Amino acid sequence: MSKPFDMEVFLAGVLTGSHVTRQRHVRQGKIIQAEIAKRWQRQTPWTWQRKHVAWFLENRMSHRSEATRYYYVLTVRMLTLRLARSWTFI
């Protein structure tokens, strides 16, 4: 039996800022992970492709406010940094 993926441990190496900021990134990372897992059956960020994250930002965040989308893009940048990928999102 495998352990469930822990987003907090995954992001721990790249998180900076205040406690509240770190918790926001972890919370949003878990939301991103759950949505991608539900749609694409990709349980961990190591299995994600750029299209999965782009889908989340374009489709799941389209009805959110500009500020909310901005904070999710910041979280995606943290995930990208942790994965050592060169993905860019606007």
Results as ranks from 00 to 15, higher is better:
residue 16 T to G: 14
residue 54 A to K: 11
residue 36 I to H: 06
residue 71 Y to M: 10
residue 25 H to V: 03
residue 61 M to N: 01
residue 53 V to W: 03
residue 85 R to F: 03
residue 66 E to F: 01
residue 36 I to F: 08
residue 11 L to E: 06
residue 16 T to E: 12
residue 14 V to A: 02
residue 79 L to A: 01
residue 6 D to E: 15
residue 21 T to D: 09
residue 77 R to Q: 11
residue 67 A to D: 12
residue 49 Q to K: 06
residue 61 M to V: 08
residue 59 N to R: 12
residue 12 A to G: 06
residue 34 A to I: 04
residue 84 A to W: 10
residue 88 T to M: 12
residue 33 Q to T: 03
residue 30 K to Y: 14
residue 52 H to G: 05
residue 47 T to H: 14
residue 80 T to E: 00
residue 62 S to W: 00
residue 33 Q to C: 04
residue 12 A to V: 13
residue 18 S to T: 11
residue 48 W to E: 00
residue 48 W to D: 02
residue 27 R to Y: 15
residue 29 G to S: 06
residue 39 R to P: 00
residue 40 W to E: 05
residue 73 V to I: 15
residue 89 F to L: 11
residue 37 A to P: 06
residue 86 S to Y: 05
residue 7 M to N: 03
residue 4 P to I: 09
residue 52 H to E: 10
residue 31 I to F: 14
residue 59 N to K: 10
residue 44 T to I: 12
residue 60 R to N: 07
residue 6 D to Q: 13
residue 68 T to K: 12
residue 36 I to W: 03
residue 77 R to P: 00
residue 34 A to Q: 10
residue 22 R to Q: 09
residue 8 E to R: 13
residue 60 R to E: 09
residue 66 E to Y: 07
residue 2 S to P: 14
residue 29 G to A: 02
residue 60 R to V: 05
residue 24 R to A: 10
residue 40 W to V: 01
residue 65 S to M: 06
residue 66 E to D: 13
residue 15 L to N: 07
residue 21 T to E: 05
residue 67 A to I: 13
residue 23 Q to C: 08
residue 14 V to M: 09
residue 42 R to P: 00
residue 7 M to W: 15
residue 13 G to Q: 15
residue 17 G to V: 11
residue 78 M to Y: 12
residue 14 V to L: 11
residue 51 K to A: 01
residue 55 W to N: 00
residue 77 R to I: 04
residue 57 L to A: 04
residue 1 M to A: 15
